[in-house]
């Protein structure tokens, strides 16, 4: 599609008009951190955020989502998808959206996810500030972000707005855009290329080598138990991960005791009972009983299991897990670099 330009002066009115016309979700400040929330005033939009607490997956795959409503003998699906604009998604989170798009679409397509996904216009924006735990400059570098409708890059004089789909182009009417000069597009490319070198953390090995090594050390129980020694099995690393999509399904009654809902909620493979089944008479079988096994499962999942299917690791380098982990043991660069260096 095409590249457009909007001046710094015209940018705020653009956002204001967009907010008036559409439901807009974007990064806003929450104390000293950032979250994706409904934006109701242009001045609340913080495109200078480093990383949000939760990734934008919550927009398409909410922490708790009703799947079926029931009342007496009657029941129905409850797919609700309001048209909206998701503004200001960093490229690494776009890559994560690409992955969840594929995973929710394959085999049995998940209509709850896809309805929300299709109703949403995704506008990516360049990384202006780098999170302390970021390593997106060194992971999946050859995987290009796809699932966005437009890409916004701040350059010295204003913003370059590259439309990728008709959905993205449809936003042009809300601002005073003009066709971008070649020099402006080049400036945007430069901004996006330079930032890749600014990550404080990095994984020093190509994805294929990491995947191979993960399989090699799979059976090294002592290694995994040591790495997971301090794990609280809290699942924080799962919950904040933009590519984690496991869920639990539970029914709940409404207060009237006649109606209720079947709902799914985010689940976490690091939690103790994630792979546990009942055998009867109080007996259980836990297929991933130890912390080491569960910790290993997460790394296999991010670094090896899905690579072929996704065309790269199921990790985008956002660093959220490094920051969320209470025991400070979840950092992929630390763990992967250690595993790659482990005695062969």
């Amino acid at each position: 599609m095409n590249a457009y330009f909007i001046s710094a002066h015209d940018f705020k009115p653009f956002i204001t008009r967009l907010i008036e016309a559409r439901r807009v979700i974007g990064p806003v400040a929450k104390r000293n951190r950032f979250t994706f929330e409904r934006v109701t005033r242009a001045e609340d939009l913080r495109l200078d955020y480093d990383v949000t607490i939760l990734p934008p997956k919550k927009i398409f795959f909410p922490p708790v989502q009703d799947l079926v409503h029931f009342e007496g003998e009657r029941y129905a699906g409850c797919i609700e998808a309001e048209p909206q604009v998701l503004l200001g998604v960093h490229f690494y989170d776009v890559k994560a959206i690409d992955m969840t798009d594929q995973l929710f679409r394959e085999k049995f397509a998940d209509p709850n996810y896809l309805a929300a996904r299709e109703a949403t216009t995704v506008v990516a924006s360049n990384v202006q500030r780098v999170s302390d735990a970021a390593f997106w400059g060194s992971i999946g570098a050859d995987v290009a972000p796809k699932g966005h409708d437009a890409f916004l890059t701040m350059i010295e004089t204003g913003y370059v707005f590259e439309t990728r789909t008709p959905k993205g182009a449809a936003l042009l009417e809300f601002g005073r855009f003009r066709i971008a000069e070649k020099s402006e597009v080049a400036a945007a490319d430069r901004v996006n290329a330079e930032i890749l070198e600014k990550c404080p953390e990095r994984i020093d090995h190509p994805a294929e080598a990491v995947a191979k090594r993960l399989w090699e050390v799979f059976g090294d129980e002592a290694l995994w138990e040591k790495l997971a020694e301090d794990c609280f099995s809290c699942g924080s690393c799962n919950v904040i991960c933009p590519t984690c999509y496991c869920f639990d399904v539970q029914d709940r009654w409404n207060l009237d005791q006649k109606s209720g809902a079947r709902a799914r909620s985010w689940d976490a493979c690091l939690t103790q009972d994630f792979a546990q089944v009942s055998l009867g008479a109080g007996a259980t079988e836990n297929f991933r009983e130890s912390r080491g096994e569960r910790f290993r499962h997460r790394f296999m999942r991010k670094g090896a299991y899905l690579n072929k299917k996704l065309g790269g690791p199921a990790c985008v380098g956002c660093g959220r897990c490094s920051q969320a982990c209470t025991a400070d043991i979840a950092s992929p660069p630390k763990v992967i670099n250690k595993i790659m260096g482990a005695a062969r």
């Binding site: 998940d110 999509y245 496991c246 869920f247 639990d248 399904v249 689940d267 792979a275 297929f287 296999m300």
Partner: peptide
Amino acid sequence: RMKCGVGKCGHCQIND
């Protein structure tokens, strides 16, 4: 633990 049955929820995974 085949919770969703449709290859999404993750509970029944054996490796990949």
